[in-house]
Design a protein around this nucleic acid. Structure first.
Lengths: 238, 238
DNA sequence: GTTTTCTAATTTTGATGAAAATTTATAGCC
DNA sequence: GGCTATAAATTTTCATCAAAATTAGAAAAC
């Protein structure tokens, strides 16, 4: 990694981060992690961008320690690449990694669906969440829908008895979401479709149609892929 | 978490850790993590044991910063529980978590096997690794076998094109191994059986018998479970 | 005399700023 | 043109301070 001359065109990022308030009464490291992770997924922190600890710390008004903590978690997520003693950059969007992520997430969520079909679980617990999803869809509120979508999948894994599976799926999901942010053209359509798939899945689960449910969850996750696949060239890392 | 009076019977752990040399020329945080992780899996650091950062740092002859880094990774592995401003303990062995881990690992490795059967991969690359396994088995060298076993499963995931799957499987494997250390009575038998299962799996893969291969990998992982299940009572966390 | 409540001390993690170590780019020299 | 020394940028580690939580003991209330 070349060490570029210290450039001064950092104002964009500086302004972006300076706006955000850190709550000093809660652990800072976690807040920095959440913030940076979101910025990377939302493409505000772009692939290849150099992010040194001192600058981030200064802009956020905290010391380097909590920033470092955040970096370590981002590194283990594969969202940041650190070369020891040299520097850190936001990782590039790697088509292969996304493909891998989708395969892993599909395998995990298929297992979740399989377990729910096998064991008796109370599927009525989804009604509140689905209602919130419906409201978000009707208002085309993508942010709120994504929040409820996460809650939906978490609840699924929870009811299946393997909450860790969702934690893992989430870590690969970051890469998928980051790519998706760039390529999804018609967001209202997309969330409407996703909501429809959620409804169908719960229906199939309630009727214990395990084959149908497995197909539905696979399609639900693979739908993401067709999105990503159509835009990102196979071998081009942005 | 109660805060017990500072007791002075720490000599066992102190001695245990003081013996280990830290290589100052490589990153310390990673070394501390590897060391503590191994100690927890090997049951030298036992469930419920309190481990405060300062003591570990002193015994290892390093500062608290790299120890903190290690703790953060151990926490995300679920091997250490830290209550803010109170303290850290080695997590208890949770039967439910192990069960979950086995289900997740099985799902991931079944996907690996499925992908290998679907796509054409060079399975001759296993011969060297299998030879090393054979030597380890013949010498009843469990440590060496476990090392080669890890390499075997990593190579499997690599050839399937989803190396991340093995990284994930590894994080749940720590919990499984920790329990297994306590219950496996006849280690030479166990590694002999595992080696046999590896051979059969590669055979099935070479002949593209995907159903057989899927059954074999499932059994390979579930074999662990029968071990753990027979000793650890369902609801008793140690 | 017993129980409850308040206060101070102790322990532990959280955060900070500075010093040390290391790598890389750049300029100067042969 | 290639090699070496120097300086800059950055991470890594350290020692120290700050904040939070629990315990222990004294004081107060019953």
């Amino acid at each position: 990694m070349p060490r570029p001359k210290k450039s001064e065109n950092k104002t964009d990022l500086s302004d972006l981060l300076s706006e955000h308030q850190i709550d000093r009464s809660r652990a800072i490291g976690g807040q920095v992690y959440d913030l940076l992770r979101l910025f990377i997924i939302l493409d505000q922190l772009q692939p290849g961008m150099q992010i040194n600890e001192l600058d981030i710390a200064k802009w956020l008004g905290v010391s380097r320690t909590p920033v470092r903590e955040a970096y370590q978690r981002l590194m283990s997520d594969g969202l940041v690449i650190t070369q020891p003693k040299v520097g850190s950059v936001v990782s590039s969007i790697d088509h292969k990694r996304i493909k891998e992520g989708i395969i892993i997430r599909r395998a995990l969520e298929r297992e979740v669906v399989r377990l729910i079909c096998e064991n008796d679980v109370d599927l009525d617990r989804f009604s509140a969440n689905l209602a919130l999803q419906r409201v978000a869809v009707s208002q085309s509120d993508a942010i709120e829908f994504f929040k409820q979508d996460e809650a939906f999948h978490l609840m699924l894994a929870d009811l299946a008895g393997i909450p860790t599976a969702w934690k893992m799926a989430q870590s690969v999901k970051a890469h998928i979401d980051r790519a998706r942010i760039r390529v999804t053209s018609n967001l209202p359509d997309r969330i409407n479709q996703a909501f429809d798939e959620h409804l169908k899945l719960i229906d199939a689960l309630k009727q214990k149609q395990s084959d149908t449910a497995l197909d539905l969850i696979s399609q639900h996750i693979e739908a993401i892929f067709s999105d990503v696949d159509k835009i990102t060239p196979e071998n081009l890392n942005i």
